[in-house]
């Protein structure tokens, strides 16, 4: 296939066809008029063709559409840079073997879901013994001493605990993102850590389904882990980053 990286388009069944499937609801009654509205709306998004393949009344004067758009804009991917976590991912076994070679003590990790967010699913997946989807959590990593404080922990409490336990890394989870509440909570925590003068003593790591490394860096964290991350991603990062800091401090 002859790819032009300066003009990448979605692939339907032919290179460059720019085929995209969309589904959305309009606050309009179902009928010919709203179908035409949906088609024109999709055309206005930059497609050269739009085909409404399904329009259905979903109650209270709303209509749900499935639309196929074709020939949409292209993207030059040669100019894109993404702030990815740069360390490599080790398996749990590798982490267990390498940790004692890198550090003469267990690394202390404190984690919580802060604010009023009651969802422990993220922090549990990373920290709890059982982990998630067959990927064991940090509690099963011999190189770490982990403290999962659970959900609805105030930023004050998390910081207090992190200082008391002399945490090497603090994991902050945010699942609820309505009205960008997660940004507020994450920012508040980072500001508190900075005000406490302990910012250089601990790695700050943010996690959650709507968080990525770029966002975490922007908010002042050292790294961020989003959807699909497991304990080994976080463990590998903590080991390698703290080791890098330790060795560069010696040098």
């Amino acid at each position: 296939m002859d790819l032009n990286l300066k003009e990448i388009k979605p692939y339907g069944d032919t290179l460059g066809d720019g085929a995209v499937q969309l589904s959305f609801t309009l606050p309009l009654k179902c009928g010919a008029h709203s179908t035409e509205a949906a088609r024109r709306l999709v055309l206005s998004m930059g497609f050269s063709e739009a085909e409404v393949v399904n329009n259905v009344d979903i109650g209270e004067g709303f209509t749900f559409f499935v639309v196929y758009g074709k020939g949409c804009r292209s993207i030059d991917v040669t100019t894109i840079e993404v702030a990815q976590v740069k360390t490599s991912v080790w398996s749990r076994a590798e982490c267990n073997t390498k940790a004692p070679e890198m550090f003469d003590r267990k690394l202390i990790v404190v984690g919580a879901c802060i604010g009023e967010d009651a969802h422990t699913v993220g922090i549990d997946a990373i920290m709890n013994m059982k982990g998630f989807n067959g990927h064991y959590g940090l509690e099963r990593y011999s190189g770490f001493e982990s403290h999962n404080l659970g959900a609805q922990v105030t930023p004050e409490n998390l910081l207090e605990k992190a200082i008391a336990l002399k945490a090497d890394a603090v994991l902050v989870s945010q699942v609820v993102t309505q009205r960008d509440i997660h940004m507020k909570n994450l920012t508040q925590f980072v500001e508190m850590v900075e005000a406490s003068g302990k910012r250089n003593e601990m790695l700050l790591i943010a996690g959650g389904p709507r968080i990525d490394n770029a966002l975490a860096l922007e908010l002042g964290y050292d790294a961020g882990f989003g959807r699909g991350s497991y304990a080994e991603d976080v463990a590998s990062y903590i080991l390698q980053e703290l080791y890098r800091r330790k060795t560069s401090a010696l040098a």
Binding site: G59, E60, F62, A118, I181
Partner: peptide, 25 residues
């Protein structure tokens, strides 16, 4: 209420209004 009515029109028998995060505390 609007969303609940739309759902009921399309077959829902029970509507739950989820509480805001943190109300339980």
């Amino acid at each position: 209420a609007i969303q609940a009515k739309a759902a009921a029109e399309k077959g829902a028998d029970i509507i739950a209004v989820i509480r805001t995060t943190g109300q339980s505390l």
